[in-house]
Design a protein around this nucleic acid. Structure first.
Lengths: 101, 101
DNA sequence: TCGTTAATTCAAAGATTTTTGAACAATATA
DNA sequence: TATATTGTTCAAAAATCTTTGAATTAACGA
């Protein structure tokens, strides 16, 4: 597989991160990743595999997640420390939010 | 003018607030309102008045802003305390974020 | 009352996102 | 080598969002 591109977090606009997080499916993915790293397939999300692939790509391009090829899978993790440095408090507030998603 | 509807902040999904904040024009509006209350007309935003009206409506429906009729204008304010109570840290992180919008 | 100001609404156009399913690529395993 | 697994990519369809300009509404002041 070609190398997976991860944008420099400093170049990412705030609006892009907010847009990436503003989709309920992607919020689910992020909240799941906050608990533990996952491969796409092991995510318990209701979506076709191409839709899931799309959402994961949006999150990656927004600098929210990191992926590493591992065999035929991709191990996906939150770019938590980097995000916290770039947008202090943002991810925490999203992960801790109560009520309707 | 008919009364202006402001949704109960407890019913607003996190994704709706993030979606409202994910547009650069709306982020500008919010950042401007964080400094001082405004009428639509006094906002220094590049957009037609109907586009501005649309964006302000999206922010109002997402519970981000409050509007009060005052003569022919509408005085617009951030629902800061309510938002802080519902999504602690979210607005602060958005307002303090450095770098590209 | 008439004109002005401030802003909303509407419908249409334009743009962007999301979903789908089929085809494809890369790796692993029998 | 064949086959299964994991995930990507593509193009088309569907859905959603944004912008525009014209028409409208409401409140104010002369």
């Amino acid at each position: 597989m070609a190398t997976i591109h991860h944008p420099d977090i400093r170049t990412i606009p705030l609006s892009a991160v907010l847009a990436a997080l503003s989709d309920p499916t992607r919020l689910e993915i992020v909240r799941s990743l906050a608990k533990k790293a996952c491969t796409c397939g092991s995510l318990d999300i209701e979506a076709s595999k191409s839709a899931l692939s799309h959402h994961v790509k949006v999150l990656r391009q927004a600098g929210v997640i990191h992926q590493k090829a591992e065999g035929t899978s991709r191990v996906t993790t939150l770019r938590r420390e980097e995000l916290d440095a770039r947008f202090p408090g943002l991810l925490d507030s999203v992960l801790r939010a109560k009520g309707p998603i």
